[in-house]
Amino acid sequence: MTQTDTLAQIRAIAMSHAQAEGPLLPLLHAVQDRFGHIPAEALPEIAQVLNISDAELRGVISFYHDFRDAPPGRRILRLCRAEACQAMGAPALIERILAHLGLERPGTTDDGALTVEFAYCLGLCACAPAALLDGLPLGRLTDAALRTALEEPQC
């Protein structure tokens, strides 16, 4: 995809949301759904279409944990570390999984295969510890179950 294509797509997404009541969050979600992150070159386009300042736009993007400024790995694992999962041993599980993946903290593996993020409650508290792998819920997690899920082909 060329730079011009990217900008044209971002502009089209921005225009399609411009008339909504409070368009910015749905617009940012749409951009991230399309590109996996909010590309830096998107910012002037979005700011112009919505008639807001660059500072305001950056302020909003940086406020929300969901929005990324760099592309994620091919798969995304969100590990819950809220209280219900803690009660079922999540802290130790998370530590072991990060070590297994060669990560010191949440982030993307060197080979770009996987991005690990922390989540604070996935609403799966009665089958803790829990995670989301590419949006699919995983519960009653064990090290073995999580490794198996990560090795399975992406669906």
Binding site: A82, E83, Y120, C121, G123, L124, C125, A126
Partner: peptide, 8 residues
């Protein structure tokens, strides 16, 4: 926006 841990 059900963010509280333990609620679902």
């Amino acid at each position: 926006d059900e963010g509280d841990s333990g609620t679902f």
